[in-house]
Design a protein around this nucleic acid. Structure first.
Lengths: 154, 154
DNA sequence: GCATTATACTTCGATATCGAACATTTCGAT
DNA sequence: ATCGAAATGTTCGATATCGAAGTATAATGC
């Protein structure tokens, strides 16, 4: 039954690395999401938006798209939900009436100030499975891979 | 405005590695999904199920859960959609009437036989941004990280 | 200035994804 | 043999996610 894939060594190697990358990321993000959902009733996406606004200040949705690597329609949805929850507000931009500038409300700021340190601690705990050098190397490899994939002409 | 996070060096390092991991994986999977959707009208999840069945043979949904690292309810949904598309079939297991054994239909087998080599080639192309040694190291680090995260008592 | 093109965002329809609650069936302990 | 716990799937309600199509506005080219 187990008809394993017969590819070139190069393909086998690439697939193996890819599968491990995808699985590790799935597992880590899954753990973080569990915690966020359970403790703060937030999704990873929502946290990503709040965090960007917290660290970088108010910004148009188009910029949020680039920061969190999601489609425009997705950002609309996530911001809708955050707005409904009273955590962010959409404003206008005088010099360009197409733009919706998103900013934290006071409540949103309070929340992210409380949640982010715990989230950071949890990330540190999970990434602690790797040594400092290993984390640095993982970061380097991922950065290289991510940039190349983003540039990849499809 | 940019109020950057002031954490310990250990936290900064861990967060940096985590963000790069998440972004690279998002970008790579996004590219693969684009291609799958465009060329074959398949999602990554659907491909994952078809691939598992192709390489490992028919299996219960509970086993699919473990293979693709998704919840039971998610597997129900994905298998529903594949079944509706005529690519898989659900069968019974005589010795345990709770179990639904999922297997490829002839059409599903034809599809995965055609799609998988192209998918593998695309993965190889994307991962080709890294050298063979780098791929090996990335695989090792991800495996270590993923296993630890899976074991992490929450 | 006007037509074309590009950008910002929303809406829509589809799939994915989770956890909680549920039904069914099996298993274990007594 | 029975009762309670565990395992397998499904359903439900919510959010995420995408691309395509649509609306509104801005920028560009002539």
């Amino acid at each position: 039954m187990p008809t394993r894939y017969q590819g070139s060594p190069r393909e086998v190697q690439a697939l193996d690395a890819y599968v491990k990358l995808a699985r590790a990321t799935t597992t880590v993000i899954g753990r973080l999401n569990q915690r966020l959902q359970h403790d703060h009733d937030l999704t990873e996406s929502q946290l990503g938006v709040l965090e960007a606004l917290f660290h970088l200040g108010p910004m148009p949705q188009s910029e949020l798209c680039r920061k969190i690597l999601r489609s425009g329609s997705n950002v609309t949805t996530v911001v809708d939900n955050l707005e409904r929850a009273g955590l962010v507000r959409r404003g206008a931009q005088d010099d360009d009436r197409r733009v919706r500038v998103v900013q934290l409300t006071a409540e949103g700021r309070r929340l992210i100030e409380r949640v982010f340190p715990r989230h950071a601690a949890r990330v540190t705990e999970l990434m602690g499975a790797l040594t400092r050098d290993e984390q640095r190397e993982l970061g380097r490899l991922c950065r290289k891979l991510g940039l190349a994939a983003a540039d990849s002409t499809d």
